[in-house]
Design a protein around this nucleic acid. Structure first.
Lengths: 212, 212, 212, 212
DNA sequence: CATGAATGAGAATTCATTCAT
DNA sequence: TATGAATGAATTCTCATTCAT
């Protein structure tokens, strides 16, 4: 473990970098400003991270590590539940909130924006983010199908359907309309619930009660 | 009508600009290169378009004009059909192909990437693109519901569900993984069909035949 | 003599050039704009005048030719007069108006501004303008002294004193404060009269009536 | 107090800028050259002064601050004197030398030359330079008139007369003929003395001894 | 002679990165 | 490690001037 002071400087730099990259994009972000925001010196940045490129990749990849932890928790409960519908609804709400709140969406957009400059970053983000979540969801759906609680033929496809039904509307809007887009809790709830309804109509085991 | 030569130069510049912007992004695109690709001189570009900014906005906005024309056609048939299911399937296939083929997706990503630098462009693209298509679809769904061919409460929500069920998978993948992503016709067909199935399970009038 | 059409084009170009150079200065003036204002083509300008430099020198030198004609007239009367005081006053008024009205002052400033870039132009303007006028005035004063109507030892010095007493105030203000400076007729008259008073107090033959 | 090194760099840049602007004019001056002459880097210039424009304004305005200090001294003695004639003569000599020596005249011409590009600079220079000096002189003349040592009706007019009588000849010549113009001490003395003579002939209290 | 485009070079300004203190 | 400056290359945009039609 490094010296506490050094480690703190590192932390401050990474936070500052995230803030500035998020606000100004990769090209718009200036090393001078990152240093200023971090209250550190450019020297330190270069000593620790080597270059602006490396720093960028570093913070995105770092952020990536935290992603599935958050989703894993939400999905974990789903696998064990007996009341699929209400748990699905719960998961849907968590998804929507996780993605629209916090910096998630802004990071997502940043990665998309710079995917041309950093192709492996885009790929890494996709694999560790959406793909990962879908894989977890798919495995979950497969189990639930085995237990007769869902009727899913292609779990991966169903996982995609679930996610996009639930989050596509706010996610797509933010992609284009940026940070001045705000969603009320009511809207987000509505998107989540409606998405789950559609999902269940399609993937609920036959013979059960009808939609709505 | 303008002089043919001048108009041709303008065309060549716009095509060259689209190519270079798409390949390198706004910042990565160099005016020198655009001029070289267009086989014209920088002067001509600056005389015609004023600045790199303006040129960029111009080609994106220009592209925008063609978008809904394409979708309008596909959706037009839907409103008039009696066989909703097969027409929906048809529309779904067209959507997937329209979005994944051609430069559509790359322009979409370019706009997202530069939405920070050109906020009104992002908004304009969103309004003239996704929002427009959804509005057309929604109105269509409302009519079909009136005719008893669908059962849709919230047409706008249903329009979103339809679109994203059908196109989310390839669209999202391309956003992150860029141009090295290719989808086989079989995959695209599968995404379209599966999306329609889910949509119908939810929005088909009650009492009809079940899914699959 | 050249063809009338060609000669007209030449005239239009020179007028346009004067207008644009005066408005924008040498560097600020664009050949494109001169051509546009002249309603002619850059080709014609280059064929006739060779270069922007040459055109500039040409119009300044051309303007120079007209200068002393104007002053010569005013001064001519002075040499022949018997009533020195009233004729001097008349000349003073003409000087002030000639310099402050019309484009004279703006040309003067333009030449000063570009004297670094066109040293011989500055010198030529000085010789054909101020120096010339002073020489004429000096010779005039010498004659009047011979006739006992003035008492001037150093005619050249007296010529300078006369001119600057009369015109310095408005001329200097315009040099710095540019074209937004306007002088009322009353002001100009006051400057002229006051300057003449001082001049006469110093150069009126001894023993005559006192000032004021 | 700033770090000595930074302050020194600032000084070197300002001196270099003055030198280059004076030699080449605003447009002719290249930032590269200013940096080279200053022995610093363009970055330093841009960090300190922001732009070529700002740098230019800065050095002119800076120079302005020193101007009236110099004149105030000369004029101060005049207000207190009992021997107006010899003190006036002294002031006149100082004026001529102050203006023709040093960089004063070249700065004056530079400001005139760029007054089109920097209108407020021209105005500021005029107000802080000529206007200021004339105001001080005028107040001085008013006092001397009260004490019966001069007979001045319009102090402001008289102040202008004094200044221009004394300095117009060399000032105007330099405006047009630039830096290759040199005046001998004898010439300058002659201009000063002759100007004072004329001034006194007009503004000396009545009944005193006549000119020459 | 007018129009429009091409050439070809120049200039301000900006940065990432490195060096010195 | 923080500060300030230096380096050195890029890049947009601008023009005078020339060519082609």
């Amino acid at each position: 473990m490094e010296s506490s002071a050094a480690e703190q400087a590192r932390q401050r730099i990474m936070e500052a970098a995230m803030e500035v990259f998020l606000r100004d994009g990769y090209v718009g972000a200036k090393t001078d400003e990152i240093a200023a925001v971090a209250g550190s010196s450019k020297q330190t940045i270069y000593k620790r991270f080597g270059s602006k490129d490396k720093l960028f990749e570093h913070i995105v990849l770092d952020r990536l590590e935290g992603i599935d932890k958050i989703f894993r928790e939400a999905i974990g409960e789903l696998a064990a539940t007996d009341d699929v519908e209400s748990t699905l609804r719960d998961v849907a709400h968590r998804f929507v909130y996780l993605l629209t709140r916090s910096a998630q969406l802004r990071v997502r957009r940043l990665v998309i924006a710079e995917a041309g400059r950093f192709p492996h970053l885009g790929r890494a983000y996709f694999d560790a983010g959406p793909e990962r979540v879908h894989a977890m969801l798919a495995s979950c759906f497969a189990q639930l199908t085995d237990r007769g609680l869902l009727q899913v033929d292609d779990p991966d496809l169903a996982a995609n359907h679930f996610t996009w039904l639930v989050v596509s509307i706010p996610v797509n809007k933010v992609m284009f309309c940026g940070d001045d887009t705000e969603f009320s809790a009511a809207e987000l709830d509505k998107y989540a619930d409606a998405g789950v309804e559609v999902f269940l109509a399609a993937y609920r085991p036959q013979g059960r009660r009808a939609r709505r």
